[in-house]
Design a protein around this nucleic acid. Structure first.
Lengths: 125, 125
DNA sequence: GCTGTAATTTACTAAAGGGCTAATTAACCG
DNA sequence: CGGTTAATTAGCCCTTTAGTAAATTACAGC
């Protein structure tokens, strides 16, 4: 299929799945309890599918207790994802610096801010 | 469409796109130069599409220089992704600890490791 | 104005993703 | 055994995605 990192990132690329993980941070729960907040938006089989994706990505582990399937968070795959991102830490900070400089420019208390803004947008680099 | 975080994660959920970002860490380049390592696997329009995804996610910025389109890395969206992951840091460490404990168990030089393993699998919690 | 180079757009296909309903499995309980 | 609850599977549908080949835009330079 695809590599681990891709599977991890693509599992995280959905708000419902991220919400499920957030729920599991508070501890083990069953499928119906996980599904409960979403049932106005989607059906139970829908949630089951999302759980399957998270399970395949290794982010969730299902066990068995009678007819219940207690799900637990397994954050281990996030380590690789975090490690990948770590490589871009310098670049993230650089981006924030650029943003900071820009904000400093536009919020500067000089008398004619309008001209400054236009100038910053239209000038050639 | 979808939220920023989802767009970021789903942009990262592809090895080609991650490789493009890795390339851009070494500095600004044109589309053909970015595409060069992938041309055995896919065509130029294919790479253009991937770049479009990265651009839509705000991870890449294209400028214009005659007929060239110099692309630059913009890691800023990774900040939100990293912040999201940060919340799971404790859980990642916990997972690593569990893994460490497990490895310690299986590599322990005790005489009857087989029974231990079977016991751990079949016991009721 | 022609020619070559850089890159994108268009139009199409196949596969994957996310959702649904209905049916099925599995277990408990009385 | 029969009913109930928990969860999954199966079979669809529709949209998005990833890829291609061919056409098109945009620019440089002679």
């Amino acid at each position: 299929m695809q590599d681990t990192l891709s599977r991890t990132f693509s599992a995280l690329a959905d708000p419902t799945r991220r919400a499920i993980l957030a729920r599991l941070r508070r501890g083990e729960t069953t499928v119906t309890q996980i599904a409960e907040p979403f049932l106005e938006r989607m059906t139970l089989p829908g949630v089951t599918k999302h759980l399957k994706v998270l399970e395949t990505a290794g982010l969730v582990t299902k066990s068995r207790d009678a007819q219940w399937r207690p799900c637990t968070l397994n954050a281990e795959p996030l380590n690789d994802a975090a490690a990948w991102m770590q490589e871009y830490r310098v670049h993230m900070e650089a981006s924030l610096d650029r943003l900071g400089e820009y904000l400093k420019t536009v919020s500067t208390p000089t008398p004619e801010p309008t001209d400054d803004v236009i100038d910053a947008r239209t000038r050639k680099p």
